[in-house]
Design a binder for these strands. Sequence first.
DNA 1: AACATATGTAACTTATAAATTACGTAAAGG
DNA 2: CCTTTACGTAATTTATAAGTTACATATGTT
Lengths: 66, 66
Amino acid sequence: MKNRIKITRIMLNMNQKELAKQVGVTRQTIGLIEKGEYNPTLKLCMAIAKALDKTLDELFWEVDDE
Amino acid sequence: MKNRIKITRIMLNMNQKELAKQVGVTRQTIGLIEKGEYNPTLKLCMAIAKALDKTLDELFWEVDDE
DNA sequence: AACATATGTAACTTATAAATTACGTAAAGG
DNA sequence: CCTTTACGTAATTTATAAGTTACATATGTT
């Protein structure tokens, strides 16, 4: 489950802790999702997208399985 | 977690069983997701989107919480 | 040197997505 | 009438997303 969360977050000068707080999960969960080791729920994906001012497609589409 | 899966599926003349088979889940899981009672994983959302020839945004974006 | 911030990651627990089984209704066809 | 197809849904189990706690490193700063 690769994605563009990390690069987007860094471009917004946001750290993992702040993103985690905004979307209501822990710092560790954000770290694992960014690393592609988690398969997050749709609800969480949407919360992350909104926190980063992106859409689902911009963060998650066509970045998967390689 | 509302979405546009059901209407998209019907427009493709596909039944729940066939979609379920294509994405590797059960008919019941598709039914509950269509009804908005499940919060599916990103992986499953992407499988459904590809099976219906749509993107994540087309099926799930801005359909949520009301 | 000591301390704070940001991140990676591992072990274990808890919450919940998804599977399984089973029952129901409604429509179409024989 | 009976059977099949498509769907809704409930109860229980299983798999896994996410939480918690803890320890690690690298960087910066005082």
